[in-house]
Amino acid sequence: MILIVVEYANGKVSKSTWEMITAARESGREAPLTALVLGSNISAIAAEVARAVDQVLVADLPALAQYDPELWSAAVAQIAAEGEANLVLIGGSRSGREYSPRVAIKLDAPLLEDVITLKSSAETNTAQRYTFLARVTETIESTTPIAVVTIKPGVFNPATPKAEAAEQFDVDLNLPTPRLKVTGKTAERSSRISLSEAEIVVSGGRGVGSAEGFTQYVEALADQLGAAVGATRAIVDAGWRPYSEQVGQTGKTVQPKTYIAIGISGAVQHLSGMNKSKTIVAINRDPEAPIFKIADYGIIGDVTQLVPAILTELKK
């Protein structure tokens, strides 16, 4: 079987899970797709994901109410071993990158990290991933009976749920005694849609001029379009925007229907995080900016003049 560890947030299956299901479907491996849902009070999550896989395994336990890398890795490894899984797919989120190596060690399996393509057969698992700041696409291969794979977010198209729901099964787990206790959480509060879920993303680079310019042009356009806000690494390093908004090699990978790049020259590190967007619109005063090479629509001009004109037209 192909085991997919479900990621979810705020009572809904995360986009990364639907992307993992697509990766599994397109891998070529002839094996049933099995979703594993870990947590507490997760019946709604299990029911939602059941419409896209062949079966759902549910571990609804109070001990799993809070994410713990030791408990998650123990649970995933146990289910993978008992079910004789060929592939274990884990999201390339912060938590996924944390516990996936533990799963690989427990299963004595290779770990194929942050992959952007995946092909699997009875003999081999072949994947590709970016390396050297996305300047090189590296091909990696495993020849073991089982492999643990983390899927780079925003690369695969989200799977489409089916009309019929798969059967669900409760599972018993042999979990270790927790050694970690969560004493509190602080969540970032924002009324904006998250980058990973947005259909429209408006991003800004140094061409906006200043932190105030970012607010005046990028945020204003995002508010008008109901879009998420993104930023280049230079903007984040300058302290103008938080890291949670960074798009690129060392930030988030996004694949929205529309990506609007304002004052972004198009460094390869940034392009690697957004170049699979359906439609790319670039606004930059430098006609030689690399961003224009991948843009579907390019506007050459001063951001301080063009964006206010666009906002005026939108408000009409």
Rank of each mutant, 00 (worst) to 15 (best):
I4A: 05
V5P: 03
V6I: 10
E7D: 14
G11Y: 08
K12D: 12
S16K: 10
M20V: 11
T22F: 05
A24E: 08
R25K: 15
S27V: 06
E30R: 10
A35M: 04
A35I: 03
L38V: 11
L38Q: 12
S40G: 12
I42Y: 01
A44I: 04
I45A: 02
I45M: 03
I45D: 00
A47M: 10
E48C: 08
E48I: 12
R51M: 04
R51I: 03
D54G: 09
D54W: 06
V56W: 00
V56K: 02
L57Y: 01
L57A: 01
V58I: 09
V58G: 00
L61V: 02
L61A: 02
L61N: 08
P62Y: 02
P62A: 02
L64E: 01
A65D: 11
Q66R: 09
D68L: 10
P69A: 11
A75I: 11
A75V: 12
V76A: 07
I79R: 00
A80W: 03
N86H: 13
V88R: 00
L89C: 07
G91Q: 11
E98W: 03
R102F: 07
K106P: 04
K106M: 14
L107M: 14
D108E: 14
P110A: 12
L111C: 04
V115T: 11
T117R: 04
E123H: 06
T126Q: 13
A127N: 11
R129G: 03
Y130F: 15
L133M: 10
A134H: 05
E138L: 12
T139S: 12
T139P: 08
T144C: 07
A147W: 13
V148Y: 15
K152Q: 14
V155F: 09
T160F: 02
E164L: 09
A166M: 13
Q168W: 01
F169Y: 13
D170P: 09
V171I: 14
L173I: 04
N174A: 11
L175D: 01
T183D: 12
G184D: 06
K185E: 15
E188V: 15
S191C: 01
S196H: 11
A198D: 08
V208E: 08
E212I: 03
E212T: 06
L221I: 14
G226R: 10
A228L: 01
V229W: 02
T232P: 01
R233P: 08
I235D: 10
V236N: 13
A238P: 00
W240V: 10
R241Q: 13
P242M: 10
E245D: 13
E245T: 13
Q246R: 07
G248A: 02
Q249E: 10
T250Q: 02
T250D: 02
G251R: 00
G251Y: 00
G251F: 00
K257I: 01
Y259N: 06
S265G: 09
G266V: 09
A267S: 08
V268K: 06
K278R: 15
I283P: 01
A289L: 10
I291D: 02
F292S: 04
K293A: 11
G298F: 00
I299G: 02
I299Q: 05
P308I: 03
A309W: 05
I310R: 01
L311Y: 04
K316C: 03
